[in-house]
Simulated scan of single mutants.
Amino acid sequence: MKDLTGKKVWITGASGGLGRAIAEESARRGADLILTARNEQKLIQTGERCRQFGSGRILIRPFDLNKIESIPMFAASVLKEAEGMDILVNNAGFGLFEKLEDTPDDIISSMINVNVIALMMMSKAVLPYMKTGGHIVNIASQAGKLATPKSSVYSAAKHAVLGFSNSLRMELAEDHVFVTAINPGPIETDFFDTADTSGRYASSVKRFMLSPRVVATKTVDAFYSDKREINLPGWMNAASKAYSLAPGMVERLGKKGFNQK
């Protein structure tokens, strides 16, 4: 395993799901952790698990990333306390599988704020601390490559994350700061408690869901590497590639499955 002893890893959305799994995998490799999410009690639980796995120093810093106007001050205080930063994992995000006309305006704003604007602002905040090298890891989605019905806002957000990551990667190449986008398909987490309140979509894809630990391991393995993207699972990535070549055909062939949400 890649040794992360002495490396400072900041993970947003660390209160559960993939964020917690990434924190635990980083802890197994000895990293110092900064854990951020809205729910302080769940963050404390993540921190306790990470101590058992052998992490270094742990800072629990709850924050609501929907409050984008407060991010610069919050990030500055955390970075000062942590005395630098080596790796930022922008994992926080949420989705809602609903037609646009049925999606509340405040949910549209929040989804863009948390999934996109907060990710950009957090990335900007850590850059002055990565002048001697670092890594920004953005958790995107296969939805950012292959859009489907009832996910128009979520897909737009993840498309934005991919575009941002690709541009930022080129901007930072000479500064020895790596930028990696993680594009998983459905993961077996509580993401669907919010995104799919009916339970129909989660039920239909349950047999295809990825394990959080598998995605987390591949993510942490990529720390301090020049990987552009990690795409999971393989068959879904193949569908995304086919879509980029023949979008009309894929939309026709996949119509029935796409509308299962």
Rank of each mutant, 00 (worst) to 15 (best):
188 E>Y: 07
184 P>R: 02
201 Y>V: 02
191 F>T: 03
179 V>W: 04
194 T>L: 10
167 S>R: 01
196 D>C: 08
188 E>C: 09
179 V>S: 01
192 F>W: 07
200 R>Q: 15
190 D>T: 12
196 D>A: 06
205 V>F: 08
185 G>W: 02
169 R>H: 00
183 N>G: 06
172 L>P: 01
192 F>C: 08
202 A>F: 09
176 H>M: 13
191 F>E: 01
195 A>C: 12
200 R>K: 13
208 F>D: 12
202 A>Y: 12
176 H>Y: 12
196 D>I: 01
192 F>V: 05
186 P>G: 08
198 S>Q: 06
180 T>E: 07
167 S>W: 07
173 A>I: 11
177 V>L: 08
208 F>V: 11
169 R>T: 03
199 G>P: 04
198 S>P: 00
187 I>W: 04
205 V>G: 08
206 K>Q: 15
174 E>H: 13
180 T>W: 01
175 D>R: 14
180 T>G: 07
181 A>R: 05
194 T>K: 12
173 A>F: 11
187 I>D: 02
207 R>A: 13
174 E>C: 09
180 T>D: 05
171 E>C: 01
204 S>V: 11
207 R>P: 01
185 G>H: 02
191 F>I: 01
182 I>N: 03
173 A>R: 13
176 H>N: 14
169 R>L: 00
205 V>A: 08
189 T>Q: 05
169 R>S: 04
188 E>M: 11
196 D>E: 06
184 P>M: 06
199 G>M: 09
201 Y>A: 01
182 I>T: 05
207 R>H: 10
172 L>M: 09
169 R>E: 04
198 S>M: 10
200 R>F: 13
188 E>L: 12
202 A>M: 10
187 I>S: 00
199 G>F: 05
194 T>R: 10
196 D>H: 07
176 H>A: 14
173 A>P: 00
192 F>I: 00
168 L>M: 08
204 S>R: 13
195 A>D: 00
174 E>N: 10
186 P>T: 00
189 T>L: 03
170 M>W: 02
174 E>V: 13
194 T>S: 07
199 G>Q: 09
180 T>V: 06
187 I>T: 00
201 Y>K: 10
193 D>L: 14
196 D>L: 02
183 N>L: 15
175 D>C: 05
206 K>D: 11
170 M>I: 04
182 I>W: 05
177 V>R: 03
193 D>R: 14
190 D>A: 09
167 S>P: 02
168 L>K: 02
171 E>A: 06
176 H>L: 13
172 L>V: 05
187 I>R: 01
175 D>I: 06
170 M>C: 04
190 D>K: 14
202 A>L: 13
174 E>Q: 13
192 F>Y: 06
208 F>I: 15
178 F>R: 09
194 T>I: 08
202 A>K: 14
199 G>L: 08
195 A>G: 02
193 D>G: 13
184 P>E: 07
175 D>L: 15
178 F>I: 03
174 E>P: 07
197 T>H: 08
190 D>Y: 07
173 A>G: 11
201 Y>T: 03
180 T>P: 05
190 D>V: 10
176 H>G: 07
186 P>N: 13
176 H>Q: 11
208 F>P: 02
180 T>K: 03
204 S>N: 14
175 D>Q: 13
178 F>V: 04
207 R>C: 14
203 S>P: 04
185 G>Q: 00
172 L>T: 01
194 T>N: 10
205 V>L: 06
203 S>G: 15
187 I>Y: 04
176 H>V: 09
